[in-house]
């Protein structure tokens, strides 16, 4: 019960001496990364973390989980959403819905393109983005457009060009400008 009993905790280098004790439980560990993984900020603003708690372990917390949320009745069944004549909104006809899609902002088009794969809507948003001079890169699976301020340099063989482009990053949900070597057969 005296101080000598703590020596094995202080002598982690001595494997034989410190063997009985699991140091991760006695001395513990630096908790900063665990606290950070919980979403607990270092500054003085506190917010609840248990309401969006994904899992007790960081290793099984690889996706966000839907928290409790409430949709007031007044938000449900709003007519005319996404310029749709029906409620809830639908996009079913390539011919009829093209003009509706033309009214949306770029970000709305990106959102619909990525959120509704294998649908009429994905096709419609693809066509509209092309109309706006965006091109879809088949390997990067991202949309890009020419930086209007820079003229690209076409390669000698005519198969590619190097220039400055504006990409839309769907992970970070923002446009970003990048210098890039663009192969013509990679875009559509």
């Amino acid at each position: 019960f005296g101080l000598k009993a703590l020596v094995p905790l202080l002598r982690q280098d001595d494997k034989e001496l410190s063997k009985p004790y699991d140091h991760s439980m006695t001395l513990g560990a630096d908790l900063s990364s665990m606290i950070h993984s919980l979403g607990i900020p270092r500054d003085n603003t506190r917010h609840r973390v248990l309401d969006t708690f994904q899992s007790p372990w960081a290793e099984t917390s690889r996706s966000e989980v839907e928290p409790t949320f409430f949709i007031p009745d007044s938000f449900v069944g709003i007519s005319g959403v996404l310029q749709s004549p029906v409620t809830p909104p639908r996009f079913d006809s390539a011919q009829n819905d093209q003009q509706r899609v033309a009214l949306f902002q770029d970000e709305t088009l990106f959102y619909l393109f990525y959120k509704h794969p294998g649908t009429v809507l994905q096709e419609l948003t693809y066509l509209e983005l092309r109309n706006r001079n965006w091109r879809y890169h088949t390997t990067l699976r991202a949309w890009l457009t020419k930086d209007p301020l820079m003229e690209p340099e076409v390669s000698a063989d005519g198969l590619s060009e190097r220039g400055s482009y504006v990409f839309f990053d769907p992970q970070r949900w923002e446009k970003c400008q990048k210098d890039f070597l663009l192969f013509y057969n990679a875009i559509m």
């Binding site: 063997k19 699991d22 991760s24 439980m25 908790l31 919980l38 607990i40 708690f53 007790p56 372990w57």
Partner: peptide
């Protein structure tokens, strides 16, 4: 939690427990 022989599984249980208590302590 037995001296000298804590299994990996129990170690993982401990880590999860610690994380939960940290969450409670914050909220």
């Amino acid at each position: 939690t037995i001296k000298g022989k804590i299994s990996d599984a129990v170690s993982v249980v401990y880590k999860g427990t610690l994380r939960i208590f940290l969450g409670i302590s914050n909220d």
